[in-house]
Nucleic acid binder design. Structure first.
Length: 456
DNA sequence: CGATTTTGACCCGCGC
DNA sequence: GCGCGGGTCAAAATCG
C-alpha cells in the first residue's frame, strides 16, 4: 500500500495539470476515471468538429492552435489512462499478496463494515428494535444499497437479513465507535445530519451531562451519537458516532459518514490482529505537523473506539493537535493504536473546525502530500499485515480523499463566479488566507440540524 | 398542533 | 444477589 501511494504521489506530481482536468470532468460524471476520460474524448471530438467548419485565414490559426491543444489533451488523456491502469494493476497485485499472507496467518473473518450489536441482546431489545437492529449489527458510514423510501422503517431486504445472519453467526461480533474531539462552543458540532435528542445523563467523572442523539434523517435509522464536553477542557466537545445510516445522506454529511466508516473499518481491521500499531513517525505538510505514536489510555472504553482529535493543544494556543486514536477494551484482540497529527496554525481554525473542513484537510493532505500518504499507508500496512479489511480503510480514505478533492476543485471553480458559498459566510469561519481555507460545497445545509439543536 | 427537548424511571451488563 | 453506571424509554414540557 505504501509503495502504491508513493507511486501515486510521484505520478500526481508529474501530472498536476492532468489532474485538474480529470477532476473537473470526473466530478460531473460521477468519479469514474473511465467515464471522465470518455467525456473528455467526446468534448475533444466536438471541438474538432466545430473547428472543421469553413473559416477565414485568421480562423485557421485558431484552428491550428486548437488542434495542437487537442493533441496535447489527447496525450494527457493517454498518459492518465496508462497511469490509471498501472496503478490499478499494482493495487490488485498488492491486494492479492496481502490476502495470501493473511490466509497463512489467520482464519478468515467476516469482511464487512458491520460493527455488530451484541448477540446477547435482551428480549425486550429484540422486540423493540426489530426495525433498527435487524440489520444484524450497527455499522458505520454510508450504505448506498438502501433506497430512500418512505418505508425505511420496514424490514430490510433479504440480502441485509442474510448479512445479519452471517454477522450473528460469527461469534466475533464487534461494536465500534468513532469519536471526534473538537473545539466547539455550540451544543453539538455540525456533521450534516439531522439529530433528535432522546436522552441526557450525567456520567461518572464528568460534571458535564452526556447527551444522546439519534439520526432523524430517515425513520428507523440506527445511527446514534453521544455528545459530551471534555472534563479536562470544557471547550472541547466529544462526539461519538455509532451505527450506520440506512438512507442516503445529505452531501454535507457524506464526508463525516465516509470518514467515520473508514475509521471504523480501520478500527475493526486492527481489532482482528494481535499486532499493535507500533507507529512513531512525523511528517510536515502545508504547515501541519503530522505525527503518530502509541496511544496510552489508562482507562480503555468498553467498546473499540477510534478517536479523531481535532482539538488544539492546551500547552500552546498556537498548536492544534489532530489525531486518530483507537481505544480498545482490555483484550488482546483490541490492540491500542493511534495516529497523532498536530499543527502550529490553530489560530486560523474556526470553532466550526470539526465539520467538513477537517475531512477536506485530511483528504487534501492525503491526495497532495506523499509523505502524509506514507504515514497513513504505514498505519494501514501495519494493520493489514493481518487483516485485509485494513485495505478497505485505505480505499475508503482514498476514495473520500478523491471525492473531496473533486468537490474542492468544483467549489474552487465555482468560486470564480460566486464567493457566497464559502464558509467565510459563517461568523465562526476562518480568516482568509490559510492552508485551511477551503470552500464549502453545500453552504445551505450548513445551517441544518445544529442550529436546531442550538435554538434552545 | 406537531416536532423537539427534558427528565425521571427503567433496563441491562458488569464487577464485587 | 446487589449496587453501580451507562444507555434508553416515554410522558410531560416546551417551542415554533
Amino acid at each position: 500500500m505504501e509503495v502504491l501511494m508513493m507511486e501515486m504521489s510521484r505520478e500526481n506530481d508529474a501530472s498536476k495539470q492532468e489532474e485538474s482536468i480529470t477532476q473537473i470532468v470526473c466530478h460531473e460524471d460521477g468519479c469514474s476515471p473511465k467515464a471522465s476520460q470518455t467525456d473528455i474524448g467526446r468534448k475533444l471530438h466536438k471541438n474538432a468538429d466545430m473547428n472543421s467548419s469553413p473559416s477565414s485565414s485568421s480562423h485557421e490559426e485558431e484552428l491550428e492552435s486548437a488542434m495542437e491543444e487537442n493533441e496535447r489533451l489527447k496525450m494527457m488523456i493517454k498518459q492518465i489512462q496508462e497511469n490509471y491502469k498501472s496503478l490499478q494493476l499494482r493495487f490488485i497485485e498488492m491486494l492479492q499478496q496481502g490476502s495470501a499472507i493473511e490466509g497463512a496467518e489467520e482464519e478468515p473473518e467476516l469482511v464487512s463494515l458491520s460493527l455488530g450489536t451484541s448477540p446477547t441482546g435482551s428480549k425486550k431489545d429484540d422486540q423493540k428494535r426489530t426495525t433498527t437492529d435487524i440489520n444484524g449489527g450497527l455499522t458505520l458510514g454510508i450504505n448506498p444499497r438502501f433506497p430512500s423510501h418512505e418505508n425505511n422503517s420496514e424490514l430490510p431486504k433479504e440480502e441485509d437479513r442474510e448479512e445479519a445472519v452471517v454477522a450473528a453467526d460469527k461469534s466475533q461480533v464487534k461494536r465500534a465507535r468513532v469519536s471526534v474531539r473538537t473545539r466547539c462552543e455550540a451544543l453539538t458540532m455540525y456533521d450534516g445530519c439531522q439529530w433528535r435528542k432522546y436522552g441526557q445523563k450525567i456520567s461518572k467523572g464528568n460534571p458535564c451531562p452526556r447527551s444522546y442523539y439519534r439520526c432523524t434523517v430517515a425513520p428507523g435509522c440506527p445511527v446514534r451519537k453521544q455528545v459530551q464536553r471534555s472534563v479536562d477542557d470544557m471547550s472541547i466537545l466529544i462526539t461519538t458516532y455509532e451505527g450506520k445510516h440506512n438512507h442516503p445522506l445529505p452531501v454535507s454529511a457524506t464526508a463525516m459518514a465516509s470518514t467515520t466508516a473508514a475509521a471504523a473499518s480501520m478500527l475493526l481491521s486492527g481489532s482482528s490482529t494481535s499486532q499493535p500499531l507500533g507507529l512513531s513517525s512525523a511528517v510536515e505538510l502545508n504547515g501541519l505537523s503530522f505525527s503518530s505514536s502509541l496511544h496510552d489510555n489508562s482507562r480503555p472504553p468498553s467498546f473499540p473506539t477510534i478517536t479523531i482529535d481535532l482539538t488544539g493543544s492546551p500547552a500552546s494556543s498556537n498548536y492544534i493537535s489532530s489525531r486518530f486514536t483507537a481505544d480498545f477494551p482490555a483484550t488482546p484482540r483490541f490492540p491500542p493504536a493511534n495516529l497523532n497529527f498536530s499543527s502550529p496554525v490553530a489560530e486560523v481554525l474556526p470553532s466550526v473546525w470539526g465539520n467538513d473542513q477537517f475531512y477536506q484537510t485530511l483528504t487534501k493532505a492525503i491526495t497532495s502530500d506523499p509523505s502524509f500518504r506514507s504515514l497513513i499507508s504505514a498505519a494501514i500496512s501495519t494493520v493489514d499485515q493481518a487483516d485485509q479489511r485494513a485495505e478497505s480503510f485505505g480505499q475508503n480514505l482514498m476514495q473520500a480523499a478523491i471525492s473531496q478533492s473533486l468537490k474542492d476543485s468544483a467549489s474552487y471553480f465555482k468560486g470564480f463566479t460566486s464567493s457566497s458559498s464559502r464558509i467565510g459566510s459563517s461568523p465562526q469561519s476562518s480568516p482568509s488566507p490559510s492552508p485551511f481555507s477551503f470552500s464549502v460545497f453545500n453552504s445551505a445545509s450548513a445551517l441544518g440540524s445544529d442550529n436546531k439543536e442550538q435554538k434552545k
